[in-house]
Amino acid sequence: MSRITITPRFVLDYTVGRYHGQVEVVTKDIGATIGTEILDENGVRICSYKPGTRYSDRAEEIAEEHLRKALELWFRRPLKSVEAMEPKEAVAFCLRVIVADEQPWNPDEEEADPWL
């Protein structure tokens, strides 16, 4: 029998100047909180954290707030290291800076479901 997995996904499209991109927000109920992953358009993890909420829709709103702050940080370019980066890399870097204060979460360390 095949294992079936359904993962809810939430995509945020953004535009900064002439640059257009998107990130995908994946939330997972991990007990007393929601785990949140933000992935680039290729499905590569940019960051993952616990936003301190029990509701996936609120976690998605928090991810949107983080992205907005990251885009503002990138657009203003106060970080010298961001200037030499490609736009996609710069957005990912700024997003990691913004979520640094969140409680970290590593989805790779999640235990496998004992029922499967």
Rank of each mutant, 00 (worst) to 15 (best):
K69D: 14
E111A: 11
E110F: 00
D40H: 05
I34C: 05
G17Q: 01
E111D: 10
A63M: 08
G52Q: 03
N42K: 14
V26D: 03
L95Y: 07
N42F: 14
I38T: 03
E109M: 11
R77M: 11
E89V: 07
E60Q: 14
P114Q: 04
E37V: 05
R68I: 05
A90Y: 00
G35L: 04
A63S: 11
E72W: 07
Y55E: 11
E24L: 06
A63E: 04
K28M: 14
Q22R: 15
R18C: 05
F93C: 12
L73F: 06
K80P: 05
A112G: 03
D108R: 06
K28P: 12
L39C: 09
Y14A: 04
E86K: 08
I62W: 07
E41M: 03
R76N: 10
T5Q: 14
K88R: 15
D40Y: 12
R3I: 15
D113L: 13
V97F: 15
E89D: 07
I6P: 04
E102S: 07
I4L: 08
E65L: 13
D101A: 14
S2R: 11
Y49D: 02
P87T: 00
V44F: 15
A92S: 08
S81T: 08
K69F: 15
P51E: 06
R9I: 15
A32V: 13
H20K: 07
Q22I: 02
